[in-house]
Amino acid sequence: MENNPIFFADGADSKMIAAYQKAQETFKYFWREQSWEYRRIIPGLNVSCVKIAFTQEDSGSEHPIVEHMWINKIDFDGDHIKGYLINEPNELTNIQVGDYVEVPLNEISDWLFAITPSTKKATGLSKLFSSSADPLPKTYGGFTIQKMRSDMSPSEKKDHDNAWQLDFGDFNDIEVVHEQKENPENLLEHPMSKNMQENLVKFLQDHPDELINADDNGLTLLHKETIAGNRSCVETILAAGADKNKQTNKGKTALDFAKQLNWEHLIPILEN
């Protein structure tokens, strides 16, 4: 990712603005996937990053300099997205590669993750001998990228995709969760949430304090699983005795996050 070119776009373009809005509305799916990625023993994501519009005042113009660049190592507390810049700025001097970034959700312009279609990923020496015909990682999200691809000629699109070494597919058909077409139910529930439910029951039986422990922001396990949209986890945590009215340092309950992120399948569970 660090060596990929930055493709600039006109922020005044109505379709690009619509892409920004779509990215913000669906970011919850990115975070759901990322939250499970942090728990995997073997990484499943080939790419995982968020795009932000960085600005700087321009002494020679009344308009600020704007560059849309990517951050990775993403964290999310339900309100703010955090990470580290992975692009080299073209003109900006107020930020550089590796800088820590924290912005509210409504200031991101895109998100992207990619997963290799094959269930068996090449690692170590096997990568050296993998076939050139191996499938490229399939992308999810990337709304601004797909808008730009829609304006490209076939040759430009090919050059763009080769620069990323990713399978962007059809710019008119953007998916937001892995295997969305094969398993539409994945929109409602991440497979790992269901598959790990029995383990979570056992974990909470062995570690009951995890129901009340909170991080520096006051986020409990219930808050975090709600933010990630994990219904099976939320149901298990509530059944184990978690206080659904527990508030964060900013006074937010799990229900507040469910409504804020529009996790419609969690709202009835937390309201009852």
Rank of each mutant, 00 (worst) to 15 (best):
F143L: 08
F129H: 05
I71M: 08
L255C: 10
M69A: 03
I86A: 05
G60Q: 13
L125R: 07
L221I: 15
K246E: 11
N87K: 01
R32P: 01
N245Q: 13
F54K: 02
E185W: 05
S130Y: 09
F113P: 02
E175A: 08
L204A: 09
L204N: 06
D10A: 12
Q56I: 03
S109Y: 05
A242I: 11
G60C: 05
N90I: 15
P191R: 05
R40P: 02
K202E: 15
K259A: 03
P137Q: 10
P191K: 01
M69C: 07
K259G: 00
Y20M: 12
S61F: 04
M16F: 10
N4F: 14
L188V: 02
W31I: 04
Q21K: 14
D161F: 08
T116F: 09
V50N: 02
E37M: 03
E37V: 05
E25Y: 05
M16E: 07
K259F: 02
N94M: 10
R231H: 04
G169P: 03
I71Y: 06
V234I: 11
K259W: 00
W164V: 00
L261V: 09
S61K: 10
W111K: 01
T93E: 15
A242Q: 12
K138H: 11
I267N: 06
I237M: 06
L270A: 09
R32C: 01
G169Q: 11
N46S: 06
G229K: 04
M192D: 14
P104Q: 13
S48P: 00
V176A: 01
P184W: 07
R149N: 05
K22G: 02
F257D: 00
D151H: 06
Q34W: 07
Q165M: 06
H63A: 03
D173Y: 09
H190C: 05
P5D: 14
I145D: 07
I86V: 14
P43W: 10
E271M: 04
W31G: 01
V234M: 12
T248D: 09
E189P: 00
T248I: 11
N3A: 14
Y100L: 03
I145H: 09
M148H: 10
Q205K: 14
A214P: 00
E102A: 12
D99G: 08
A163M: 11
A240T: 07
V201L: 13
P191E: 07
D77S: 06
G11H: 13
T248K: 12
L222W: 02
F30I: 05
N162L: 13
A133G: 06
V47P: 00
Q24Y: 06
Y29Q: 05
E102H: 04
K181E: 15
E156Q: 15
P135C: 05
K181W: 11
A133K: 14
N183M: 09
D99C: 12
Q96V: 10
L270K: 01
T116V: 12
I145W: 06
E182D: 15
F76A: 08
A53W: 01
T144E: 09
D167C: 00
A18G: 11
P268L: 13
R40N: 12
D99T: 11
I81L: 13
L266D: 13
G218K: 12
L166G: 01
L166W: 01
D151T: 12
K194N: 08
N162E: 15
W164S: 00
L188D: 13
